[in-house]
Each structure stands twice: as structure tokens, then as C-alpha cells.
Design a protein around this nucleic acid. Sequence first.
DNA 1: GCTATTTGTTCAACGATTGAATTATTTGCC
DNA 2: GGCAAATAATTCAATCGTTGAACAAATAGC
Lengths: 412, 412
Amino acid sequence: MSPTHAPAGAARQGSLRELNLALVLGRIAAADRPPSRADLATATGLTRATVSAVVEDLLAGRLVDEAEPAPRAGAGRPARGLVLADQGPAGLGLEVNVDYLTVCVVDLAGQVRHRTVHRADLRPVAPADALAHLVELAGQARADAARQGLTLAGAALAVPGLVDDAGLVRLAPNLGWRDVAVPALLAEHQALTKQVPGVPALVVDNEANLAALGELHSRPPGPASFLHISGEVGIGAGIVLDGALFRGVRGWSGEIGHLPVNPQGRPCRCGGRGCLEQYAGQEAIVAAAGLARAELPADTATARLAELADAGDPGALRALHDAGTALGVAVATVVNLLDLDTVVLGGGYAPLAPWLCPPVLAEIAGRVLTAAWSPVTVRPSTLGPEAAAVGAAGSVVRHIVARPAGWLSRPS
Amino acid sequence: MSPTHAPAGAARQGSLRELNLALVLGRIAAADRPPSRADLATATGLTRATVSAVVEDLLAGRLVDEAEPAPRAGAGRPARGLVLADQGPAGLGLEVNVDYLTVCVVDLAGQVRHRTVHRADLRPVAPADALAHLVELAGQARADAARQGLTLAGAALAVPGLVDDAGLVRLAPNLGWRDVAVPALLAEHQALTKQVPGVPALVVDNEANLAALGELHSRPPGPASFLHISGEVGIGAGIVLDGALFRGVRGWSGEIGHLPVNPQGRPCRCGGRGCLEQYAGQEAIVAAAGLARAELPADTATARLAELADAGDPGALRALHDAGTALGVAVATVVNLLDLDTVVLGGGYAPLAPWLCPPVLAEIAGRVLTAAWSPVTVRPSTLGPEAAAVGAAGSVVRHIVARPAGWLSRPS
DNA sequence: GCTATTTGTTCAACGATTGAATTATTTGCC
DNA sequence: GGCAAATAATTCAATCGTTGAACAAATAGC
């Protein structure tokens, strides 16, 4: 109850307007119907006069539009609904993963306005070439966005690995990347890296983190605190606490793939023993189900597994049950530690959720002391496999919605 | 980097002053020498005029005093140093644990101004009687505080168990408490429960959480994010993230004692198997070292262990090494998950740290993927065994320092 | 066509910060 | 001892943003 909550900086007069711009815009973004100025006044506690002034700024800055077909009321002057501009700034989301490249554009309201998925095995491709291909796709996305009246304000890139503050990919084991300086490789592509005032520079982040952000901002909005597990070739987790992604001291939180599920178990290439990845990683499940990995392109492995399980194949069912149990041990650990009430299975786990959830819930019931008093929900992700790219793009527009003053005050 | 950070409420004009009061007071609290108004102006970015006005409010509210012996400078009018008032509001910290009761008083600056420890086995004592005894000690503490010119503004109680928002102790296994409604039992003691404006009502919280808060606010200040492990009869952890205690969705985070260290291992009374408590709990260590529990009062068990280990007793050394290894597995899990760079061993672990740290560090090195790039520090707590009570009292005064406007505007 | 009702805007007043000018107090130097 | 330089703190008019009340706009119901 007592977060020290050190005020970041001096509160000057302009801070008031900054705060209220964010407050009002946030309300508009969160509302499910276009609110009127009067609605906003009662919702925020501000005066109608203040709300009018703030909304005027937002309209002038093209972050908000007035919805022409006024929502009907009983009597009195009809209200004019306010909605997030659909011609305003948008975010560009990029993802490099083991077997695909994704580019997408998300507008202020969180709608996906453009999406490209390019399937290819990226492991044999040099990082620079992969990024060059991504830049090409981004160019098409930019053109498509412009056609729709959108301005790309910033971009974020999701990578299945550990990224430091400077955008250096320290290690992406399943992709075979090590110490790849993404910003340097993209330096020549001004369109991606040029610094726009009011928006963070090109953000490079872990795929699992950005997928969790995507889930957080999906409609209907997820809970304020949850664990999002991305079951790709590796297993990563994004931790959302109180509506904010928790990145850890260096940005490397969520390395759930190497939680010890069985400390004396199989050795893992990370150096530990009995890591979760050895029991619930995609390759481990596929192998346990008796499918030869060679005959299956990575992107169809989970689909094939789901098919087999659906048909009642005992090998697949057993493999999924065992994987779910291992996953459940790890999830129980996290829930014990962080007291979360929601766990989202994303990435490759989403289609397998019907078979993974029961054993995960069983382990939680047996291992979590507090589960008796309040239940833990385990559910599949609502976003598709492009969750990370959508989350990346969404993080850009969310930044603008959370701090509209920065965007409004840009020179332009 | 994009915490949605929804502004709590409307920013009215008064909010400016509230924010700046907190900003300036926070600076005064964090400074290591009494800063002048001019120092504060440059440090905060506010004008000297504003700082003067803000400081005037703080002086009038008796939260801050001018330090008479002005700190010397080169030339020019001498500055008047500002310090937290040592006659102002103070916090009362209470703790009920398995084998002691503690009461302490902490002033605005975080100094412990009163301390009482009453050793007794509380397990056979009814909760109401234990609390009655605590209230008696609190009365003495209040009198002592008054003698020193301090006003007790609020109180917090640490309990070794799970506490819900309403102060109901759902389960304190090692104390034998279940569903103890602390606020109801204390209702007649107005002095503890009366609501003071600007200060939270009597807070009841987990002992491990409050001990972590104590460590966070100790001098020199701890890091902004760390894990604090309280190794009492049970094992609890307090998780501090970005300078704030993370309590979880229901306030039950940090249940590290039941992390599975060996999923197929010894059954635990929690229902799981191979829980950390079975390998690194105080009773487990004592038993492994070959000490009969019966002949040792609980509070001397760790001291005796440290003695034996110091003397080179092979049984004690092996027991501590094994416990440290189990603890290391759990700590590695947490570090992988949250990417923390500091782990503090508190409670009964503090005196055993010389023998526990090496195996803990070894497990971290082997199991934490990112340990190679940046090291994890494991160190004993700087506070004594009363960390939880001090943290409890400190949480009260911290609340005032973080939101001085509430305290200043109380009717008085 | 009139009234009640609700929305949105206008405007004087107020509170808080700002920046410059002013006052206060000491050191250093002649 | 006296004077200039330097630093600290306060005073005051100006400015910015919010407030509250009054006012204008637009609709439903009678």
C-alpha cells in the first residue's frame, strides 16, 4: 500500500494540462461507446469547461475526432461523441521469429490496419538479411498506412531472445543470433529509426514481453496483472503487473523456459538440469508424441499435434498431458511467487490449450497454497500468432495515448 | 518502457502543490546532508520561489525543521539546512511471530526511537491474548514516544502468514492462526485503530513483505528492485520492484516456501511435494544438522547452528550447504523470472549467510541464463531480526513522506 | 409553440508557478 | 574597519490552467 512513488520531476503549471490530456484521452480510449464531453467530465471529475479545453487540444492535434452520428439520448441538446482518430498516428510492429517475419500497423484505437506474414525458416539467414527483408515489408506497410491516412509514428521490433536497453540482441538461441546490434544494422533506414518527438525511438524487445502487451491491450481488455506464456520453440513469459509490463532490472524478466521443473532431470543446453523447455518446449512435445521433427515444418507442428489430439491419438494425448504437467509446475511456482490470478497461454500453446489447461490447473490446485481461496484462471490467448507484432505496434500507440502532450507538442 | 500509467484522478490546481510537496519532502528525506532551499531548487528543477513556498508549508506542518547549525559554505549568505522533523509524526510497528512479540517506533527520518522485544513461544497462546499483550507493549511505546515529542500517526502489524485486504489473517501455519480477524479483535483499542486523516488505517501484512520494506528504506538505501527472503520457521519472501513492494493481486505474493525444489521429493503439509521449506526451513536445517529440536528454543537454533558451523562441525556444514543449494534452486527460479540483481537473506538466514551464500551463488551461476552478463548479489540483511517491525513502522512514515499533503491537511 | 432538459462555451476569479528584482547575510580583500 | 563579491531567501507582478456560474444551443414532450 505504500509505493514510495517518487514523483519523477517538478510539477509545473503545464504538467496539469499534460496530466489532464492523458486522463481524458485515456478515458476516450477505454470507453466502449464514444463519450461526450459531459460524460468525460463526470467520469474524470474535471469541470465541463476544462474537459472542453482539453478536448479542443486533442481535436486540434488530430488525436481525437468527433463522431458525427451523435449517440441518442433522452431529451436535451444531443451530445457529440468523441472517438480516437482513425487517421492519426499509428504504430509499426515488426517481428522476427524462427519461422516467420511479421509486419503490422496498429492505429490509435488498437485496430490492426495492416498485416503481413512471411513464412520462412530464418535460422539459416544472416541477421542483416533478415532485417533487410523486414525493412522491405515495412516499406509496403508504410505505403499501405499512408493510403489509409495513417502516419507511422514509431516502430517496435519483437525478437525471440534477450535484448538489452540499447537494442542489442545478446542472445536469441533458437534463431542463432548472438550480439546482433539491431539499431546499427537499421541505421541506414531513416524511416524506421528517425526520432519522432513524443514517441520512443525504435524499440527492440523480447517477443514474449511484447506478446503480453498485446494481450493486455486487446479487446476486451485483459486483467491488470497476468502471466502470458509464449510457447514457441523456446518458452518465454511476459509478466504484466498492475497494467504495466515488468521487464526486470535489465529487461530480461520472464525467462521461464529455464525454470527447473526437475532439478535432477535432463541436462539443458543452458547449463542447468531439468529445465521446463526440456519437457514443454515445442520440440520436446513433438518428440514425445512420436512425430519426427524433420518431416514437419515448424509452423505446422502444433497444428498437427492438435489434429492428432483431437482424433484421440494416445501418444499425442500423453505428450500433451506430460507437457501440461511440467508447465503446471512452473506456473504454480510463478503463481506462488507473484500471486497472479490469470495465466494466458499464447503463441504455439494457444491451439493446444484444451489439452494443456487441465494438467496445468491440476498442478496449480496441488501446489498453490492460496488456490483454495481464490481460483486461478488459465486460458488461451485471444490474439493470434501475431500477438507479438501487434503488441509491438500497440506499444507505440499506447505510448502516445498515455502521454499525448509529447506528441501534440512535436514541431510538425 | 510503456507503462500505461493511467493517471489516477483529475489533476486540479491543488494537485500541483501536492506533487511538489511530495517532491521536495522526498528530496529532503533522500539527501545525506541537510539541503538548503537553493539545493532543493536545483535538484528538483523548481524555482527557488516555489521551493520557498513549499518549504514554508512543510515547516508550518511540522514535517520539516531548519537545522540550526548551518552547514558551512564558501562565501555568501549561509544556507539554512532542512531536515525531517524529529518531533513530528512517527509510525508504530508491531510484530507477532512464532517466538517473539516486537513493538517499535520509527520517526520520519527512519530512525528507530523505541524498541521492545518480548520473547515467548506464541504458539500455545490464543490470538486474542497475544494481541492484548501486544497492545500493552504498544501503550508503553506510545508513552515513550510522547516523552520524545513524537506523535504516533499510524500503526502496522506484521504477521507470519497470509493476510487479506481487510486485515483478516487467513492462515499463519507456524503460529497456528486461522481466520483471525485482527481489526475486530483490536476494535476496542481506539489508540491503534482510530483513523487519522492522511495515514492508512491499521495495516496488517505479511511479515516477509514488511521486512522487505524495512530493508528497502534502510540506510544506506537498498536497490530499487530486490528479493528479500525471511528464513524463519516458514520461508517467506518480499518482492520489491522499482522501489515498491509488489503484493500480488490479492496480497499473497512471495510464497517462496512452497516453490517446488524437487517436484518428486518429500511431501509437504501444503499438499505439494518437494517444497523448499522441506529442505531449507529452519526445522529442516536443524534436523539435518543432527540437532534435536526439543532441546533448543526456537530463537537460539540459528545461533547454535552458526556456532557449530564456525567451529567446523561437519554435520552443520553439510546441512547448511544442502539448505543453501535448495535455496539456490528457488532463488535461481525467481531471478530467471524477474531478472533481479540483488537477493537479501533476512530473518534467521542473516546469521547463516556466510555458509548459505556460496551454494546459492553456485546454483544461480548454473541456472540463470543471464548471470554470465551481469552478476547477482546475494547478501545478508542489514537490519536485525526486528526488520519486519521496523519495516511496518517505516511504512507508516513513508506513507506520510510520499503524500505529505494528506497529513498537512488533517484537521489537527 | 412553449417548457424542461441536457450539452457545450464563455468569462471573471482563483490558485500555483515563474522570473526578475530586492533584501539578507556572510567571506574576502584592501 | 569598510567595501565589493557572492550566495541565500523573499517579494511581487505576470502567466497559465482550472473553477464555477452564467449563457447559448439543440432537442423531446406536451
